[in-house]
Amino acid sequence: MAQEQVEEYLETIYDLESRDGSAKTTAIAKCLKIAPASVTEVLKSLSDKGFVQYEPYRGATLTEEGKKIAGTIKRKHRLLEVFLTDVLKLNREKVHDEACRMEHTISEETEDALCRMLDAPAHCPHGSPISPCNKGVGSCAECDGAGNTGMPLVIRDKKIIPITDLRPEQKGRIAFIRGDCKVVQRLSDLGLTLGTNVSVLKKAPMGGPVEISVRRTKLAVDHAIAENIFIEPPLLGEP
């Protein structure tokens, strides 16, 4: 059985399972527009491979292994949808089918690159959540930089905000910095590197400079420059 077919089945079962609790043969057949008899054939084969648990008449549920594959495909699918809508400006109605075909061919590397380029979107254009990647990184900012250090997976779905939105005395971690190359260089030379903990000490009135504390030093940064320093604020309960 072709890899693409396997993935398509697992994806469908994933959807049906999360809707109905399990994926009935008839429902799968309807979704994929295939005869129920062939669906039963395939489910048996998937069960043999250890991707699903299949009981005739009751339907199929995904095993851990199956869930992992389905989850990755879903993630690729939704990232592609965001890409096709936001970047290539395709019609929202068309992107689902397009993504359905592309999702099976893109590599993990492309998936990561898409995620970074799109600044780790949390939802697809249709509003479904995009799951975080399963890499062992603490945050998107460390994506690929940290490698497999075995750090616990942190929920990535935090809102990323400009440092100017932090309240005085509030802390956060630098997610990324945008802007003129020289300015970004200068900021990172002064210690505002990715993943660094920073806090806002004061904000001068009327869009004046923002005073930032980093590594026990204090910097006054122009408001317009500070607006391009993006921060992950701490989760509730974190100090």
Binding site: A113, Q185, T193
Partner: peptide, 20 residues
């Protein structure tokens, strides 16, 4: 391409890692 950031920024981050 690995880091998704300009190389000079990556190097600064590397140096700060050593400094830290």
């Amino acid at each position: 391409s690995i880091h998704g950031e300009p190389v000079c920024v990556v190097m600064s981050a590397e140096r700060y890692q050593i400094a830290d």
